[in-house]
Each structure stands twice: as C-alpha cells, then as structure tokens.
C-alpha cells in the first residue's frame, strides 16, 4: 500500500473509531434526547407564544427551525468536547498518534448525526406547531438542505470546539466564536427551507441555489478543519 493510501486508510479508520465512540457515549448518556431535544422544543414553543399569530408563524417557521437548531448545536458541541476534557482524554488523544484529520472527521460525523436527529424533530415540530406544509419535491430539498447544513455546522462546531476545548471560559467563548461564522448556514438553510415549505409562495426551485451555498460552506470548513485540527488540539 502506498504512503498516501495508508495515510487515508488511517484517517478513515480513526474517523470511524471516534464517531462510533462519540455516538456510543451519547447513546449511554442520552444528553441529546433528555436535554438538548427538550430544550430545542421549548424554544420552538416559546417562539410560538411570543409571536402568537398563525400567519406570522407560518412565514417565519423556517428561520425559527434553524435558529433553534443553531442554539441547540452549541450544547451538542460543548458536550462533544466535555467528554474529551472531563477526565483528561484530550491529552491521551494528543499522545495517541491518531491522525488529527481522522479525529476531526470522526467528531464532526458524530456531531452531524446528532444534529440531523435534532433537525428532523424540529421540522416535525414546525409542521405541528406552525402548520408548515411540505410537498414531495420540497421534502427532497429539505432532506438535502438538512444534510448539507448539518455537515457545515458539525465541521465548524468541531473546529471551534477543539479551539476552545482547553480555553478558560470556554462555555461563553464557544457561542462567540461559532455563531458569527455559521451565519451563512442560517441564511442559506432558512432560504432553502422557505422554498421547501413553500413559504410566501416561494417555489421549490428557488431553494436549490441556497443549497449550493451550504455545500460550499460544508466542504470549505470540512477541509479546513481536517488540515488545521492538529494545530488547534496542540494549543
């Protein structure tokens, strides 16, 4: 096996190892199901109380879904790195010799899976609470949007989660770092979801260019993260 091929195989094996480990920890700890999902649903209900108008809620439902996703994402990222730093596992990861790109991709993949679950529940909540309507074509756009957006959020979250993992005041630092960077995801995912929901008569076709933005964002941060994560872990 050539050196490059061996390096890729090592990255892939590490990514799988880390993702399985993180998802297993989540399955045992149930932080997503017992804490993050209830929080996200409460946010959705509070929005409904605050806006108190069916017409307004129908119009803003896509934005509310993605705002609730963003806020909840911060908890999932924090949890993802809390498990590494609570008993010094981060130091062990540093000295394990595992390729940092594999660590990054594995953590991002586990984060993405959790965020997808979150988005599915929040879209269902939007359908129930805000009476959002989804056609078949809209459903395809929505699924693709959710995949691209959660991939981008997971990449950014892992990158900045790693950066802030050893920092003082990381709980407050993380939102400050992450939220401004993921503004393009909020905008792109909201516009694409508006098209998927047919909000204000917007056609499904108008959502696909926004999906392009989400894909570019996800690729950019996935590649950047895979390259830069080793240096961030060292800081």
């Amino acid at each position: 096996m050539s050196g490059t091929r061996r390096a890729f195989a090592s990255v892939r094996a590490t990514a799988r190892l880390i993702a399985v480990k993180d998802l297993r920890i989540e399955r045992r700890g149930r932080v997503l199901t017992n804490q993050v999902l209830p929080f996200a649903l409460i946010v959705m209900v509070m929005f409904a109380f605050a806006l108190d108008s069916d017409a307004v809620l129908e119009r803003v439902a896509p934005g509310l879904v993605w705002l609730a996703t963003l806020f909840s994402t911060l908890f999932v990222i924090a949890r993802s790195f809390a498990v590494e730093s609570s008993d010094g596992a981060l130091d062990q990861l540093r000295t394990s010799g595992a390729p940092s790109a594999g660590i990054f991709l594995g953590k991002a993949l586990a984060l993405m899976v959790q965020l997808l679950v979150l988005v599915v529940v929040l879209v269902a909540a939007a359908v129930v609470l805000y009476r959002a309507d989804i056609s078949w074509q809209g459903g395809v756009l929505l699924v693709t949007t959710a995949l691209a957006a959660t991939c981008g959020l997971a990449a950014v979250g892992t990158l900045y989660g790693g950066l802030s993992a050893g920092a003082k005041g990381r709980e407050t630092l993380l939102p400050l770092l992450v939220l401004p960077v993921v503004a393009p995801v909020l905008i792109g995912a909201t516009r694409a979801t508006e098209s998927a929901f047919g909000t204000n008569g917007i056609a499904v076709g108008e959502g696909w260019p926004w999906l392009g933005l989400l894909v570019v964002f996800a690729v950019l941060f996935s590649v950047t993260g895979a390259i830069a994560f080793g240096s961030l872990l060292d800081e």
């Binding site: 480990k21 010094g88 596992a89 394990s96």
Partner: peptide
C-alpha cells in the same frame, strides 16, 4: 507521541464506556 503513554492526575477514560470499550478504543488508535 506515538510511542509514549502519559498518565496525569486524570485517567483519560470515558466514564460512559465500559472497561473493555475504553481499553479497546485506545488500543485501536
């Protein structure tokens, strides 16, 4: 780093995983 093992005040374990899962995870790295 590939060839040393550092054990500080913390154990570097994942409390939610079993003993075997922890040892297997670090071994697999």
């Amino acid at each position: 780093r590939h060839r040393v093992g550092l054990l500080g005040h913390a154990n570097g374990l994942y409390p939610d995983l079993t003993v075997t899962e922890n040892v297997a995870f670090w071994g697999r790295t």
